[in-house]
Amino acid sequence: MIIANYLSTLDYKKIAIEVDNRVVGYFAVSKRNQLTQGYEVEFIEQQQEYLWLIALLVISLF
């Protein structure tokens, strides 16, 4: 059963799914060299802001 799109033009990192020492499927994640969509970049930028705030909070506690 395929749960998502599998494009033959992309490279994938595949991890075998085993049950009772038998491979029953693969978990595949496409490899990317760069972020391609705007929301991905915005998410990373937001996470960086949160990390700076957390770092400042931790420093102020000491």
Score class of each variant (00 low, 15 high):
residue 45 E to V: 14
residue 1 M to V: 14
residue 16 A to C: 04
residue 60 S to A: 06
residue 7 L to F: 13
residue 57 L to E: 03
residue 38 G to A: 12
residue 26 Y to T: 05
residue 61 L to C: 05
residue 5 N to L: 11
residue 47 Q to Y: 07
residue 14 K to M: 11
residue 23 V to Q: 04
residue 15 I to C: 04
residue 21 N to V: 02
residue 35 L to T: 05
residue 11 D to C: 02
residue 50 Y to M: 10
residue 22 R to P: 00
residue 49 E to D: 11
residue 32 R to V: 10
residue 57 L to P: 00
residue 35 L to M: 15
residue 52 W to H: 10
residue 49 E to G: 04
residue 52 W to F: 12
residue 13 K to M: 12
residue 1 M to Q: 15
residue 13 K to V: 11
residue 52 W to Y: 12
residue 57 L to S: 11
residue 59 I to L: 05
residue 10 L to Y: 08
residue 44 I to R: 10
residue 23 V to H: 00
residue 9 T to G: 00
residue 37 Q to R: 10
residue 49 E to A: 07
residue 62 F to R: 03
residue 58 V to Q: 01
residue 59 I to Y: 03
residue 5 N to K: 10
residue 54 I to D: 08
residue 13 K to H: 09
residue 55 A to W: 00
residue 8 S to K: 08
residue 41 V to M: 08
residue 31 K to S: 04
residue 4 A to F: 09
residue 29 V to H: 07
residue 27 F to M: 13
residue 27 F to G: 09
residue 57 L to I: 05
residue 22 R to W: 07
residue 5 N to P: 11
residue 54 I to S: 08
residue 36 T to E: 15
residue 24 V to M: 02
residue 6 Y to A: 09
residue 22 R to D: 12
residue 49 E to M: 06
residue 22 R to T: 14
residue 1 M to Y: 15
residue 27 F to Q: 10
residue 61 L to A: 05
residue 60 S to H: 01
residue 39 Y to P: 03
residue 1 M to K: 13
residue 16 A to P: 08
residue 12 Y to Q: 01
residue 19 V to N: 03
residue 30 S to A: 11
residue 51 L to G: 01
residue 59 I to E: 03
residue 14 K to P: 02
residue 30 S to C: 07
residue 18 E to Q: 07
residue 2 I to N: 09
residue 26 Y to R: 06
residue 56 L to G: 06
residue 7 L to I: 10
residue 3 I to W: 06
residue 25 G to H: 01
residue 61 L to V: 02
residue 21 N to D: 12
residue 50 Y to K: 11
residue 17 I to R: 04
residue 50 Y to H: 10
residue 23 V to Y: 00
residue 58 V to F: 00
residue 19 V to C: 04
residue 26 Y to G: 01
residue 61 L to S: 06
residue 9 T to Y: 05
residue 23 V to S: 03
residue 35 L to S: 05
residue 58 V to W: 00
residue 32 R to H: 06
residue 54 I to W: 04
residue 3 I to C: 07
residue 2 I to S: 08
residue 25 G to D: 00
residue 34 Q to H: 07
residue 45 E to T: 13
residue 45 E to L: 15
